[in-house]
Design a protein around this nucleic acid. Sequence first.
DNA 1: TTGTACCGTTGACCCATGTCAACCGGAAGA
DNA 2: TCTTCCGGTTGACATGGGTCAACGGTACAA
Lengths: 246, 246
Amino acid sequence: MKATVPITAAGLKKACSQCNLLELCLPFGMDDTDLHRLDELVGARRKIKRQQPLYRSGDLFEAIYAIRTGSFKTDILLEDGREQVTGFQMTGEILGLDGISTELHSCNAIALEDSEVCVIPYAKLEELSRTVEGLQHQFHKVMSREIVRDHGVMMLLGSMRAEERLAAFLLNMSQRFTARGFSSAEFHLRMTREEIGSYLGLKLETVSRAFSRFQVEGLVAVQQKHIRILDGAGLKKLIQHHANMR
Amino acid sequence: MKATVPITAAGLKKACSQCNLLELCLPFGMDDTDLHRLDELVGARRKIKRQQPLYRSGDLFEAIYAIRTGSFKTDILLEDGREQVTGFQMTGEILGLDGISTELHSCNAIALEDSEVCVIPYAKLEELSRTVEGLQHQFHKVMSREIVRDHGVMMLLGSMRAEERLAAFLLNMSQRFTARGFSSAEFHLRMTREEIGSYLGLKLETVSRAFSRFQVEGLVAVQQKHIRILDGAGLKKLIQHHANMR
DNA sequence: TTGTACCGTTGACCCATGTCAACCGGAAGA
DNA sequence: TCTTCCGGTTGACATGGGTCAACGGTACAA
């Protein structure tokens, strides 16, 4: 099923040390000497077409992936067809950490647009991180950050109301676009209302209505997937001042 | 605030290699030689009284903890007072992984009963796992398992109805008691209805009502915190066959 | 052992969000 | 360029779970 995926093999050395995603990705905080040793780590790049899976639940786990271009969603499917989107990933972020525990992937990673990832063979990563302290430390931080992020989502899902969830989602996206050098106020969402809804534990109609209400209240300008944040402070207030609900 | 916590310092060597929680805890799957090297890792034990924090959000991160006896909850507090319980932990499970990313803890860990933990200084753990492959690998698995578990909770919170959530919770508890050599059918919950509710994204009344309904339907016998599972298969069906909801 | 505060249960009512349905516009493919 | 279909919006209505309140039992502290 995932057989004929193009591997742009590549003797392209200097994978990490010359990558402009440095500050966002695995090598963050590593010094120059360590950094150059990282170059041997990245095996190949892989291009994934929009809507195609990078890996699927049940696939053998062999590598983690760093997103070079594009974006992904990860989701879990229940037997009865229900889907839960567990996250959206942007450039520089790491995919596949779920596979380490059982050596099988436990979720699907689907490209939201044509994308490219760096393949980081896991065995190599463990080996190299035994001698390169900076890598070891950074890798642990990446995993821990994922855990903290997930706890934040649990907070969203467990204790916030529809509008608060959407506000938190928009602020989070804005912040991540900013970190990548894009506008914090204006951006293009790559996912559908349904995918946002699944992520936030809401139906797509509820997401759509919340967007409309935000628009009416002058908090954001929404045109399909194009979002312009007009009052970020207002969005923040929405999250904080809804005391004693749920 | 956490100043006067008793540290049962201890020259008690053989911390891990003689611990009966071996199969559940960090050393799982490590061979004898590696195991003995682990003994140097566990610095001290620490006793925590019921309702007391092992650590709090914002505390400096220095160590992770393995639960020797007792149990804990982890939670996040929002400024406005809302609480989200992000997990319940039992013997052999690891606490504190959230702290690695920022070197500050990002949640509170509160003892649900008088408990004891093994303190594993993080710097030492990183150092040792650079030479002990088995430890490195096992530690990564523990972190990854936490990520997978969190995704499961997101599934609960995002796509399941109240009774499904509670059924999933009970089955999960049952399975974890079984793994510890206790009855899978009869156990004592250490947390309140409110804490269960917070974890499952429900109000305590809803949890209580769901328990009552399960009782009426002959799925479980509930007497306060004492739970007897009468029809585990029935609980499983509840989760799976509620197709096309949410 | 006794007292008490907390925890759990239950009922009545209400509201946020889900459900179902109709319609519209734009992006992708022919 | 044309066509089609998917994604998004909006309305009307249904309902699961939240809210508020009363009460009873139990486990913990003194």
